Simulated scan of single mutants.
Amino acid sequence: MQSSATTSRGAAVAVSGLSKAFPSGDGGTITAVDHADLDIAPGGVVALTGPSGSGKSTLLHLIGAIDVPDAGAITVAGTEITASGRRALARYRRTVGFVFQRFHLLSALTARDNVIAPLLPYGKRGAGLERATELLAAVGLAGREDALPSQLSGGQQQRVAIARALVGEPGLLLADEPTGNLDSATGTEIIELLLTLNADFGTTMVIATHDPGIAARCDRTVLLRDGVITRVE
């Protein structure tokens, strides 16, 4: 990898008074995130934990600007994204890496082209080829660059998804249950990989997980219940 890959360049994240509600089936509302406050240091690895429906995914989506809060502020790398316009938010999303429980790989593309895919709308395929090859090697898939998703195991597909999340050199990576579709041994390998990449790249990581073993490996654990942050360890 390039020497800059070992330099910490993670983004600081500050969440203040963040709230988000959704309509419920009975005509009321469900508060998914309720006046959340959270500070994450550059290069930190934070686990969001709590039962299903506690607000973990919603908080990730708000930080990643996939969704818009009803109230509160989110500041990433010194920029308040909740005060940004549509174009600025689109630029911001390109600085964030996303890893989901479902791998969301394009079945007709090779592993290398899946990694490059986020760069294609910006005419950067050529520049991304070398980086994609380096990232696939970094996630343990050297020699599998031309494999289709159907030729890869679930764990290998998630490794491709992680490489894809890193191809834009993000300062922040958001992972929503990244081991949820994997067996326990493969899930452990994926978390070990994420922690190794954090050490190598310095990318700030926020990981939503039900697994207390995964949370224990992170720098800090944030417990949510009914949208409220009840404990930070």
Score class of each variant (00 low, 15 high):
V232I: 07
V228L: 05
R225K: 04
K56H: 05
L119V: 07
T82I: 15
L62A: 14
D146C: 06
D183L: 01
L141D: 05
A165M: 12
R87T: 15
D200E: 02
N114A: 00
S54R: 14
G128P: 13
C218D: 13
T31F: 09
F103W: 04
G168F: 08
G126M: 01
A142W: 03
L38D: 13
E189L: 14
F201K: 12
T203D: 08
T31Q: 11
K124Q: 11
S3A: 13
T95M: 04
G140R: 03
R164P: 09
D39P: 09
A83T: 02
R87K: 06
L105V: 00
A11D: 07
T230S: 11
A185S: 08
R217S: 12
G78D: 03
I40P: 02
I116Y: 09
K124T: 01
G128K: 07
A175D: 13
T82S: 10
T204V: 06
L136C: 01
G78H: 04
T82E: 06
L174Q: 06
Q157M: 01
L89C: 00
H104I: 14
T203F: 10
Q151S: 07
D113N: 02
L152K: 07
G187P: 03
L195A: 10
T29D: 08
V45M: 15
G171R: 13
A73S: 15
T204F: 11
V99F: 10
T188M: 06
R217K: 15
D67W: 05
V160W: 04
T133N: 13
L135P: 03
L173N: 07
L148C: 00
G25E: 05
G44F: 08
N114Y: 00
L173I: 15
R9H: 13
G171H: 14
P149Y: 08
I66W: 11
P42N: 12
A41V: 11
G97P: 12
R93N: 12
T75R: 10
R87Y: 15
A77T: 07
F100I: 03
G180V: 04
R164L: 13
T196G: 03
V99Y: 04
I191F: 08
L141I: 08
I190K: 03
V13M: 14
L106W: 01
D70R: 03
L119I: 10
D146L: 12
G85A: 02
Y92N: 08
D200F: 00
V228C: 11
V13T: 05
S24M: 11
A77N: 15
T79W: 10
L18S: 11
V99Q: 10
V15D: 09
P51C: 00
A185I: 07
I66C: 06
H61R: 00
S107V: 00
T209H: 10
V139S: 02
G155V: 12
T179W: 05
A90F: 08
A32K: 10
S52E: 06
A77R: 04
I191V: 12
T79S: 15
E134N: 02
G10A: 09
A108M: 07
G180T: 00
G126E: 05
R102K: 13
R93C: 04
A147L: 10
P51L: 08
A41F: 01
I81R: 07
R220N: 10
L166P: 07
G85L: 05
G213D: 07
